[in-house]
Amino acid sequence: MLTNLNIPFSRNWPLHLMIFVFAVYWGFTAIAPTDRIQWLMESILPVIVVLVLAFTYKVFRFSNASYLLMFIFLCLHTYGAHYTYQGTPFDKWLKASFHSQRSYYDRVVHFTFGLLWAYPFRELLTRAAAQRGFWSFGIPTAVVFSCSACFEIIEMVAAFVAGQHGEEYVGLQGDVFDTQKDMGLGLAGAVISMGILAWYLHGHPTDDNPLKGIEKKLK
Rank of each mutant, 00 (worst) to 15 (best):
K216T: 11
F160P: 02
W117P: 05
H165R: 12
K217F: 14
Y105D: 02
G186V: 01
F160S: 11
H82D: 02
H202W: 14
G184D: 00
V176L: 08
I72W: 05
I19G: 11
T88Q: 04
M70L: 15
H202D: 11
T88W: 05
A142D: 02
Q180C: 06
W26C: 08
F151L: 08
Q101I: 10
V52Q: 06
F28A: 13
F137N: 00
T179C: 02
I139H: 03
V161T: 10
L125A: 04
Y83P: 00
L76F: 13
T126N: 10
Q101R: 15
F9P: 08
L218R: 03
C150R: 05
F62H: 12
R107Q: 07
Q164F: 13
A130S: 15
L5C: 05
L68S: 10
W199A: 12
S97T: 13
V50H: 06
E155R: 01
T29N: 13
H204G: 06
L172F: 14
I153F: 10
M41N: 06
R61N: 13
Y83G: 00
W199T: 10
D208E: 15
Q173C: 02
M70I: 14
A54F: 15
Y104G: 07
L211M: 14
A128T: 13
Y83C: 01
V170N: 08
D178R: 00
V157W: 04
Y25K: 04
V109T: 07
R122A: 06
K217L: 15
K95Q: 15
I154P: 00
F71E: 01
L15A: 04
D182T: 00
A142T: 08
A129I: 11
V161L: 11
W13P: 04
G114D: 02
Y169K: 01
